[in-house]
Design a protein around this nucleic acid. Structure first.
Lengths: 109, 109
DNA sequence: TCATTATGCAACCTCCAAGTTGCATAATAC
DNA sequence: GTATTATGCAACTTGGAGGTTGCATAATGA
C-alpha cells in the first residue's frame, strides 16, 4: 500500500535526505535499476541503500518489481507531480497575499 | 546566513515535518506572526514551535525580525520557488526518458 | 512600581533514523 | 555440482530530532 498519496509531508521528508534525493535523480533517467546497481558509486552499504529505497517505496515514490534474483526499482512520478502542485498552491497564496498588501498600501497613500 | 540557498535536500527536509509544513502554510498568508501567535492553535509548547522556526530559518525559508519584545517571523518565498524549479527539472527529465522509451519501442515494432 | 507578556537559554528525556555487521537463501554462472 | 551474485532478515550502535520543564530577562500595561 502506498501509504502516502495525498501526504505531502511524507514525500518531502523522503526527499529531504541527500542519499534518497540522489536515488530519485538517478531513477528519473527512466531505467529501472537493481539494488546492486544503485549501490555502485555510493559510499554506503547495500543494506543502507535498501533501507532508503524502502523509505521511498513507503512514500509511494518508487515501485519495486522482482525479476529473477533482482529487485528492480522504478520511479513513480505521481507523488512528485503532487508536491509540485502543492508548492504551486503555496506560491499562489503568497502572491495573492502580496498583491493584496500592495493594493492596500496604494489605497492608503 | 541562509546556509541552504541551493540546497534542495535541506529545504525538503524542512518541509518534511507536519508542524513545520503547517507553519509555512500559515505564514504564506503574508502576515508576519510572533512566536506566541504561531503557538496558538498548536498543541505544542512555545519552545517546540520556536525550535521548528529555527529549523525553517536555517533552511532560509523564514526570516525573523525583532519588534519590541516580539519576534516576528515572515515567509521567504525564494527557497520554495527554487525547489519548485528543481522538481520541474526532475519531472522534465522523467518525461524525456519516457518519450525516448516510447519512440524506441515504436521503432522496434 | 508591580504584574504580565514574549522570549531566550539550557538541561534533560525519549525515540527513531541511519548506518553497520553477520548470517541465510534463492538465482545464476561456470 | 560448486562458486558467485543479489537479496532478505535481524540485531546492534549511535547521533540527533522532537519534545518537555525550569529559570532568567527584556518589554509592556496598569
Amino acid at each position: 500500500m502506498s501509504r502516502s498519496t495525498r501526504n505531502p509531508a511524507r514525500v518531502f521528508a523522503a526527499l529531504g535526505d541527500e542519499t534518497r534525493l540522489a536515488l530519485v535523480i538517478r531513477l528519473s533517467a527512466g531505467e529501472p535499476l537493481s539494488i546492486s546497481r544503485l549501490t555502485e558509486g555510493s559510499r554506503l552499504t547495500r543494506q543502507s541503500v535498501t533501507k532508503h529505497l524502502r523509505v521511498l517505496e513507503n512514500a509511494g515514490m518508487v515501485r519495486c518489481a522482482h525479476s529473477g534474483r533482482e529487485s528492480l526499482f522504478e520511479l513513480n512520478p505521481r507523488p512528485i507531480a503532487q508536491v509540485r502542485e502543492y508548492l504551486d498552491r503555496v506560491s499562489k497564496q503568497w502572491d495573492k497575499a502580496l498583491s493584496r498588501l500592495k493594493s492596500f498600501v496604494e489605497n492608503e497613500v
